[in-house]
Nucleic acid binder design. Structure first.
Lengths: 402, 402
DNA sequence: CTATATTTATTTTGACTCTAAATTTAGTTG
DNA sequence: CAACTAAATTTAGAGTCAAAATAAATATAG
């Protein structure tokens, strides 16, 4: 159905204001003449719209009317600019053991950040929410932003979320994330909370500021501890009927791998197995520096340790199988490996690419994300900004620093 | 970017006309009062818009002002109705050995149909186009519609097509379909041709008038001769970067099945293998009625023939594996088996559902399409109508029967 | 048959938005 | 200071819609 709202004359101004605001977001230090060219409006209208938007706080007028340096003829133009601090967006990465919150302005620049651990896995939903809330307030504080200037909150969780943002708990483990965050934060602060699967946000994040910049058809595999994929087709996130799109775990069972571990987890497990045996390996030395971490395996492999190299080979094989299956079904242009392990996983790219032809007729490019373990918060910010940009003209600004 | 068109006052009328027309499409015999209620416009505007649309040919005014039978008080209302013959849509199913064309009015009712075989597989692209064109003109003739009243043509082909409607020939076989249909039909008749993968159209068709009516997340597997899937997530078709989304063939190689055959093909092959051996089977009798066709195998199975039952079991296993892989990755609510074989494939549903739990944690409902071998043309009509409905107000009507 | 009730259609008025063209303003240049 | 130039403002005109008042067409009651 079409928009239920009837086409009243005021709709025109909304449309005009929308395209002016959109243009402002993609540029800075803009004259009315530039607005006219970008939007096709006449000068009179362009000025009226700019004054509207300025009035409502979305843009500001610059003082120095004449552009810096370059001399120009004629009457100096008024100059406008997006008020990137008209409001803020919170991006959250809610994991099993900790919650991370970043504060972003309307251009997507991160102004504050805070990360708090959950005291232990058994705490109640209320306690989890309370930790998340505290992290949010700390992050806002460090950004110099007040809670009532938050325009949207986007949170990534490691459970299926459908396209309405509802969590569907069909596995016990996922109950960890079914904590009523939406209603809790709405009640406490009046915030609009968008829930989304963490891998889906990772996909948005990497397409925004990662390896997939500008790619329309891309799959981002969050591959550190568990495996989950965020899939974009034509730039749109796939959700499936109950948010279960991209839950790759079971796919691997089909292919005989039989577990749901990500790269870092598997590296740890396999390293431990090797050490339990009698293998001669420099891993032992590496692991004395602390617990068995994935990075130790990668370090040992870099030194040529045979056991570590074997583990890397198995990891590459596993990833190639997963990527091959995804590529056959969805034909993405690019598959990105993301998450904390992405920093070390670069060495896997070549072996993966080599094996990929065995598993798909349409091998995609494979890359690792440069966003590291902030990939989910970056994506959360993007999701929040998307919401704000779609709804700007319906949102009231309050308490923002102009 | 936003629409490049500036927001002129005329835009309002376009929006209003769009929602009135949309309402007209979903109802018949409509009064202005009904339009007002559906669109939120006032009476004056609603009347003006209706008169616009009538003028331009999209709707007609009914003569009998008072509704039949039911007595009503007050001044009789003017009554309007979609002019379903304002123009026509062609839906094409271009296969390996024949081309089928149906003519549909703007309500999606099929008014004419024609099917022509390609003389042999080796004919040139020009000759293929010429056969398709002849089928189109015959279908139009049988519908009493003239070629210049065609508003859109949608054609399904058994090759990958990207979301711009471009064919990407990366396998020799697909060259059969790279015949320049778009430009040829545009040149000959001025038609707008939308190309799409046949399984994708099947998905649109089955969601429109098949087993998936109203389902947002559905996968339709065209399963007769070859396997191909049309996948809808949130009601949107998936294409992948080069149109390769849903090409399931290779997926099966991964899982050790090793060929690209559909249900009917496999039934034939396995039946032939069984007959080559010494198996005691009533299939022999069935097959004397003609070539080894899939339906014979289903018929023999219905009589309890052990060999035929074995074949059905293998088919169900194969389909369960394929559906399981798709379901794990995309989490559809429903998977539909479509194509000519769908008529017989109903008996496979139960065994497939039974095996499905082995292959996915999120088993979807499984159904067969009631559309049989017209599933692709139905979907093509839907695709054409979608185009017309999106672009109504930019299309000129000409030569239509009012 | 007339008066009234009821529903629809039309007309009028006013508000909002946009474009286009003419005019004014605020600077630079010489 | 005058000439020039680009931006801003003003004015006139047109398209669109809502709201309210008026007119038209029919059914029903008496």
């Amino acid at each position: 159905m079409a928009d239920t709202a009837a086409a009243t004359p005021q709709l025109l101004r909304r449309v005009s204001a929308g395209s002016v605001l959109e243009f402002m977001r993609s540029s800075s230090d803009v004259t009315v003449t530039a607005v006219m060219e970008a939007t096709g409006l006449t000068r009179a209208t362009a000025i009226a719209v700019c004054e509207d938007l300025k009035e409502r706080g979305w843009i500001r007028e610059l003082e120095n009317q004449r552009a810096f340096g370059g001399y120009q003829k004629g009457r100096p133009a008024r100059r406008f600019e997006l008020n990137e601090r008209a409001g803020y967006v919170l991006g959250m990465d809610v994991g099993v053991s900790k919650a991370t919150v970043v504060v972003s302005d309307l251009r997507g620049d991160v102004l504050g950040k805070s990360s708090l651990p959950f005291p232990d896995a058994e705490i109640s939903a209320e306690e989890r929410v309370s930790v998340i809330d505290r992290a949010a307030l700390m992050a806002l504080d460090s950004a110099g932003a007040s809670p009532d200037s938050v325009l949207a909150v986007a949170a990534g969780i490691a459970a299926p979320v459908d396209r309405n943002g509802d969590v569907l708990v069909t596995q016990h483990f996922w109950g960890l994330f079914d904590v009523g965050l939406k209603s809790a934060l709405r009640e406490r602060h009046g915030w609009t909370v968008l829930l989304e699967n963490d891998a889906n946000l990772a996909a948005l994040g990497d397409r925004w500021r990662g390896a997939a910049a500008g790619v329309e058809d891309v799959v981002v595999i969050l591959a550190s501890e568990r495996l989950g994929a965020g899939m974009l087709d034509g730039g749109r996130l796939l959700h499936g009927s109950r948010g279960g799109a991209g839950e790759l775990a079971f796919l691997e069972q089909v292919q005989g791998v039989g577990d749901t571990f990500g790269i870092a987890s598997l590296a740890r497990v396999w390293a431990a197995q090797a050490l339990a045996g009698k293998a001669r390996t420099s891993l032992r030395a590496h692991l004395q520096h602390g617990g068995a971490e994935a990075e130790h395996v990668f370090a040992a492999a870099a030194e040529g340790d045979a056991v570590a190299l074997k583990i890397l080979d198995r990891l590459a094989d596993r990833m190639a199988r997963v990527i091959g299956a995804v590529a056959t079904m969805l034909n993405p242009e690019l598959v990105v490996i993301g998450g904390a392990v992405a920093n070390s996983a670069g060495v896997l790219l070549e072996p993966i690419a080599g094996k990929l032809k065995e598993f798909t007729a349409t091998p995609p490019r494979v890359a690792v994300s440069p966003l590291g373990d902030s990939i989910v918060t970056v994506g959360a910010v993007r999701a929040g900004l998307d919401y704000v940009e779609r709804n700007s003209l319906d949102l009231e600004l309050a308490g923002a620093v102009s």
